[in-house]
Design a protein around this nucleic acid. Structure first.
Lengths: 216, 216
DNA sequence: GCATGATTGAAGCACATGTTTGAATCGAAG
DNA sequence: CTTCGATTCAAACATGTGCTTCAATCATGC
């Protein structure tokens, strides 16, 4: 290898460009140019463009989902030990916080956060399918934990509220790491901080969706 | 004209295909084939592909925004007349209900609803710009109405909560009119209605985001 | 060294895309 | 009927796309 690990550089470039321009709008040649690699390297390492998006997702989604799962499990365990129900806000925070922490893990993590936000809103099955395969178990686990936390609610209602919560999270991810700054600066109402810190962002989102989940 | 209004048929087909496959993933030839028109008709009537998406958005967004604005104004007026503050849920309902009513206005409205959900999550400026130009005044009006309804909250917090609310709404729109049914049926937890009626959907969403807006 | 398998590079292929062209067709006014 | 602008059509154009090919290069074990 001439330079250290072409594969990683390709993944980094793809992560960045897919997040900023979208999958279909990003030509392979843009990615290879940014990574300083040849077009053939993509098909050599990943088989196809679709194979590359899958690799981009899998690289970070594996550890991320593990962390989310562990934290939700910890919340459930603590609740059982004290003989009570898990707190809705705690469960949600266990899911949201690791996601938003991506924003602090350098430009790569930031791009990936935006990418997750994008894929959450993507109808194209060729993108949605690999993503869902990777996150479905975690989503389901979150749903079950919230059903435990809200036993008085119909499971159907819980499901739709989880859906709304994910929508709010995805939107915030896209906005925060992506176009929020650009779009916002010009059209933001006065007195609004265009990009508060990650922690503030997390706290606000958790407060919002926790209140939504617990609505009467 | 051989057949009634090629222009409208093109707009209908574009509305449908952009909603289902996305803008970049939909070739012009797919649209013209579905509309039974020639490829050149697109450039003749709209100048370019981008001109067409703009026309698709403008056709329905004009009346929709007018209705949203009138309904929000009615809520504000009623509040002033009784000397109180507008109710958060009322303001949100005035904005959300006309949007969701699209889902009942035939397949065209349904497709457009999904399309709005998509554009809400779209980072590509060539799509976002015309959309924002059309909806920015209405969004700002909603924001101001909610500031009136929540005077004890920092405007910055209100802004971010409106953002989250729009994210939740967009996600629901995409899900409801679009892939929810397909994806859902296979992986939905048991006991969850895959597609409740529009009214139920609206009530649930309003309850969720109203609670989120009013969180302490 | 050298042989071998992994990786890279330049060039090209086959095809899809948005757009343009110029002639044909249509509808209605003179 | 003729004329003229609006509209439609088939064909082509220029470019961009994902992917493949095959020779060159590299790293490593012998």
């Amino acid at each position: 290898m001439s330079r250290p690990d072409t594969k990683q550089r390709l993944l980094d470039a793809a992560e960045r460009l897919f997040a900023r321009q979208g999958f279909h709008a990003t030509p392979l040649r843009d990615i290879t140019a940014e990574a300083g690699a040849n077009v053939a390297a993509v098909n050599y390492h990943f088989g196809s463009k679709e194979g590359m998006i899958e690799a981009v997702l899998a690289r970070r989604l594996g550890p991320l989902n593990e962390e989310r799962r562990e934290r939700i499990e910890a919340v459930l365990r603590a609740a059982r030990q004290r003989g009570g129900r898990p707190e809705v806000a705690e469960v949600l925070r266990a899911f949201v916080e690791p996601t938003f922490r991506l924003l602090e893990q350098g430009p790569g993590g930031q791009n990936f956060a935006v990418l997750v936000g994008r894929v959450l809103a993507e109808p194209d099955p060729s993108l949605r399918a690999p993503f869902l395969r990777l996150v479905a178990p975690t989503f389901r686990f979150l749903y079950q934990a919230l059903c435990e936390a809200l036993p008085h609610l119909d499971p159907g209602v819980v499901f739709w509220r989880v859906n709304s919560a994910l929508g709010a999270m995805g939107h915030t991810l896209r906005w925060t790491g992506g176009l929020g700054a650009e779009i916002g600066r010009s059209s933001l109402p006065p007195g609004v901080d265009p990009s508060p810190g990650t922690e503030t962002q997390t706290d606000r989102l958790v407060a919002f969706i926790a209140a939504g989940m617990e609505a009467p």
